[in-house]
Design a protein around this nucleic acid. Structure first.
Lengths: 112, 112
DNA sequence: TTTATTCATTGTATGTTTACGATAAGTGTT
DNA sequence: AACACTTATCGTAAACATACAATGAATAAA
C-alpha cells in the first residue's frame, strides 16, 4: 500500500501534488532553471552542469518529460530538451490560486 | 543510495525541494487547506475529513510538523493543530521568486 | 566498416514513502 | 480504580525514489 490513493482526493489536489513532486528534487529544479535560461540543452550539457551521473540525470529528465514539464527533440545522435512553458506556467498559476485561497484567512498573529 | 545528495546542490534548491515534497501529497494539501480556514483543528476532526486511517493522518501531520508548516498544542486529551502562516508564506514567496527568475525568458511560442 | 559519441534503458542496491492495524500513553469520566 | 476517548508510535508490508555501472541503440566520424 505505497501508492497514493488518488481516487480518494480531488482531481485538483492530485494534479498539484504530482507537479509538486516533480519540483521536490534539487536536480530537477536545476534542470528547469537551466532550460528556462537557454532555448534548448542536450543531455550532455545538462550532465556537465548537474553533479550526478549521466544515467541519473537521464532518469530525472524522464520524470520531467512524463509530467509534461519539458519536451524532447532528437537531433542526430543527441537529444535536445526544451522547457514546456505552458505547463510551468500552469504550476505557477495553481500555486497562486492556492495561495489566494488560503492567505485571505491569515490572522494578525501566529500561534508559535 | 536513495538519499538526496544535499551537499551537491544549493541551499536554496534543497530548501525549496523539501517544501515541495511536503505539498506533494493530496492529504497534506487537504490538511493545509483545512487549517487555513479554521483557527485550529484536532487530529480527530482532520481524520473525519480525510479519507485515510487515524495513524496515517497522524503521520502526515508529523511530516508537516517536521518542516514547520504546522504547529501542535496539546490540550487535555487532544492535540490542536494550527497553520504556521509564516512558513507557508515563505513557500509562496519562494515560488514567486522562482517564477520571476524563470518567466522573463519565456519565448512567444512553445516548441511542442 | 570500424570507431567514437551521445543518450536511453536495464540491472541492481538501498533508502524512503505510504498505509494500516495494533498498541501504548495520556486525559477525562464514572 | 476502572473505563472510554484521543492521539502518537510501533510493527509490518508493499510500492516508489534515488543513484550508479553497464549495456544497448543509434548517429556521426574515421
Amino acid at each position: 500500500m505505497a501508492k497514493i490513493q488518488k481516487d480518494l482526493f480531488s482531481k485538483k489536489d492530485v494534479e498539484y501534488a504530482a507537479l509538486s513532486k516533480c519540483l521536490a528534487h534539487p536536480a530537477r529544479l536545476m534542470i528547469l532553471d537551466i532550460l528556462s535560461k537557454h532555448k534548448d540543452r542536450t543531455c550532455k550539457e545538462l550532465v556537465f552542469d548537474i553533479p550526478l551521473s549521466q544515467s541519473t540525470v537521464s532518469k530525472h529528465l524522464n520524470d520531467l518529460l512524463a509530467i509534461g514539464l519539458i519536451c524532447r527533440k532528437v537531433s542526430g545522435a543527441q537529444s535536445l530538451y526544451t522547457l514546456e512553458w505552458n505547463k510551468l506556467t500552469r504550476f505557477f498559476e495553481l500555486t497562486n490560486r492556492l495561495s489566494k485561497g488560503m492567505m485571505p484567512h491569515r490572522p494578525k498573529r501566529n500561534c508559535c
